[in-house]
Design a protein around this nucleic acid. Structure first.
Length: 649
DNA sequence: TTAGGGTTAG
């Protein structure tokens, strides 16, 4: 929806660059504060609206006064309407103006725009704006802000261009606002042009403008540029700092986010709830449970606990750190919840493969009348059923959704259909999944074909797998993961010609796999391992431990799955490469350092490979260890040789 | 009178 709005009419915009001359002129200056002069003597009974706690009473006074309304009277009434978000009040004031043929000055018309925007009536605000014979920077900025806040970015930018053309200079409010409309793939170019305008304006180092700018760069995937803007600010407050932290966190640069947070913490910065939400996102990414608990402690001491969003982030953090019990405790203790709270809790259960708990919570949510499930709820429930091995329940819930008696009010997106493909795939109904894809009201995307291909790999169905793979390779010719899965699938089916073909294709497209990385937190220190890592100070010890474990579990039936190695090397070399997988090193390191009665918790940036999964299952059985592995897709909770994922991920 | 940072899902 938002993308539609963004991409909608950006292309219709004339390049801003042609307007550089307008605002780069030396005439650019700060504007004098608008001085308000009363147009005539006000009516005390209305002008003192503040003293009337009841707006209706003042509006009644207005009717009684008849034609005798003055600027100050209207001003006072509109002020009260804005404060109390009274749309009806604003409409009555406006009709009174029309009835009495009063021609409101720019200031009052702008107040009306602000009121309508506050009441989220964009069209009425625009109508007032369009009828203005003259406008000032405030009216322009208010209207631009209205479009920005509602996600109509192209309209906001279009108005900005019109404003410059009309000869009105942008001020710090305008720049801070309009930059928000440049977030998104199509807007960045405009953002850069606006940045060049800002550089020539007196507002380059304004803290609001700077925060907007750095946020734009961060959200456009340019953390380096964002940091330059951040460092260039003459002063930094909690918002600009939070913007930088959240920019890092949203780009997955969790360590950088944590580093900046800790630096600011040492400097004594007082954070607010948004900062904590942002740092919790980074800690969720890192699965840094100990840090997370520490931050939770700060939150409790800082009296910020009443923020629902912050509580939601805590639920998310604990569940992504593998501690679903703590997550549930936060959830249970919340005095008030939003749909996001429920969704976050269900998502936690889902990632842990606890499908039953997801459905239980979903039913409870539906029973509570005050919160309505939204489209994210349904995605979570469907994916929860899929992860939890509850295919039939998931399919039943989907049917409920699409039939008339269902929830009905929720728009189904392609992601919902993707979840159904997952469910059918997991249930091994691959032909049915293929038919479902062909019949669904969306054009299948790479995620859908990827999901089907993954299911074909698990159920070893090379026929449907080839169909999905062909589509997928056309859509994502440079995604190495797809070639890897197809290779595995063909290899498991003995189709060596196809395997060779895939390898050739991989070479031809020069695809590169993202390097595998696993990490483990020990006493608040992160130990990170890369595939075939030789950088860790205890590398020799760790690698020999991996070998020792491998030898021991082989005696219990472990057999290295050489099909997981994509390199064209001999079998011995393949086994050596498998032993070098980062999660095996992290697991060995965990066994060396985590006491026997405690579970070993490992994180991996990619999906765990079949061989490492199998390796961990044998470790749990032979050594009697409980192992949690969080991979890109979910948690693997492995006890006594069995993983809760049911070997499907 | 107009302004900057935030949570869940795939």
């Amino acid at each position: 929806m938002l993308l539609k709005k963004i991409s909608g009419s950006f292309h219709d915009l004339k390049p801003l660059i042609s307007l550089v001359f307008i605002i780069s002129s030396p005439k650019y200056r700060a504007f004098a504060t608008h001085q308000l002069t009363p147009y005539s003597t006000p009516n005390p009974s209305i002008s003192n609206t503040k003293s009337h706690s009841n707006l209706n009473h003042a509006l009644l006074q207005m009717s009684i006064q008849g034609l005798d309304m003055k600027f100050r009277d209207y001003d006072a009434l509109l002020n009260e309407c804005v404060n109390s978000k009274s749309l009806r009040g604003g409409q009555r004031v406006q009709s009174h103006m029309i009835k009495t043929r009063y021609l409101p000055p720019v200031y009052l018309r702008t107040r009306l725009i602000v009121l309508y925007l506050k009441c989220e009536i964009l069209n009425d605000a625009r109508k007032v704006f369009d009828e203005m014979r003259e406008r000032n920077v405030v009216s322009w900025t208010a209207m631009i802000s209205g479009y920005t806040k509602t996600g109509f970015y192209s309209e906001a930018l279009s108005l900005f261009v019109q404003m410059l053309r009309s000869g009105t200079y942008a001020n710090e409010f305008t720049f801070a606002t309009v930059l928000k409309s440049c977030v998104g793939p199509y807007g960045f170019e405009y953002g850069q042009q606006i940045h060049s305008h800002i550089v020539k304006s007196p507002f380059e180092f304004h803290i609001y403008v700077g925060s907007s700018l750095l946020d734009l760069y961060a959200k456009s995937g340019k953390p380096h540029e964002a940091r330059i803007v951040f460092e260039g600010l003459p002063e930094r407050d909690v918002v600009s700092c939070t913007s930088m932290i959240s920019g890092y966190a949203q780009l997955g640069l969790d360590e950088e986010a944590l580093g900046l947070f800790r630096t600011l913490q040492r400097k004594g910065m007082v954070f607010n709830y948004v900062t904590y939400v942002s740092i919790l996102t980074a800690l969720s990414g890192l699965a840094a449970f100990e840090y997370g608990k520490q931050v939770h402690g700060h939150v409790l001491r800082s009296e910020l606990t009443s923020y629902i969003i912050l509580q939601n982030s805590l639920i998310d953090m604990y569940s992504k750190c593998g501690n679903i019990t703590y997550a549930r405790r936060v959830f249970d203790e919340m005095p008030e919840r939003t749909a996001v709270s429920w969704n976050a809790m269900m998502a936690g259960y889902s990632k842990h493969g606890l499908g039953k708990a997801v459905v239980e919570l979903y039913n409870k949510m539906r029973d509570e009348n005050n919160i309505k499930p939204d489209s994210a709820t349904l995605l979570t429930v469907l994916s929860g059923c899929s992860h939890g091995g509850m295919e039939n329940t998931g399919l039943r819930i989907f049917d409920e959704m699409v039939c008339e008696n269902g929830i009905g009010s929720i728009d189904l997106s392609i992601e919902h259909y993707g979840c159904v493909v997952d469910l059918l795939g997991r249930a091994g109904q691959l032909e049915r999944a293929l038919r479902f894809i062909k019949e669904m009201p969306f054009e299948p995307n790479a995620a859908i074909w990827g999901s089907l291909l993954g299911a074909c790999r698990v159920h070893k169905n090379a026929g449907v797998g080839k169909i999905a793979g062909d589509y997928l390779l056309k859509m994502e010719p440079r995604n190495a993961g797809n070639y890897v899965i197809l290779c595995n699938l063909y290899a498991s089916d003995g189709k060596w010609d196809e395997v060779r073909k895939m390898r050739e294709l991989m070479k031809g497209t020069a695809v590169k796999k993202e390097p595998g990385k696993s990490w483990i937190e020990l006493r608040r220190t992160m130990h990170t391992f890369y595939a075939s890592d030789r950088s860790h100070p205890r590398k020799d010890e760790i690698l020999s431990k991996v070998r020792e474990i491998s030898d021991r579990i082989k005696g219990f039936g472990y057999c290295p799955d050489l099909s997981c190695v994509m390199y064209d090397v001999d079998e011995e070399q393949k086994e050596r490469l498998l032993l070098g997988h980062s999660e095996k090193m992290a697991l060995a390191f965990g066994m060396m350092n985590v006491s026997a009665e405690k579970a070993i918790r490992i994180m991996k940036n990619l999906r765990i490979c079949v061989d490492c999964h199998n390796f961990a299952k044998f470790v749990s059985q032979v050594y009697g260890r409980e192992v949690f592995i969080r991979d890109k897709s979910r948690f693997h909770h492995i006890v006594n040789g069995v993983c809760l994922c049911g070997d499907y991920w």
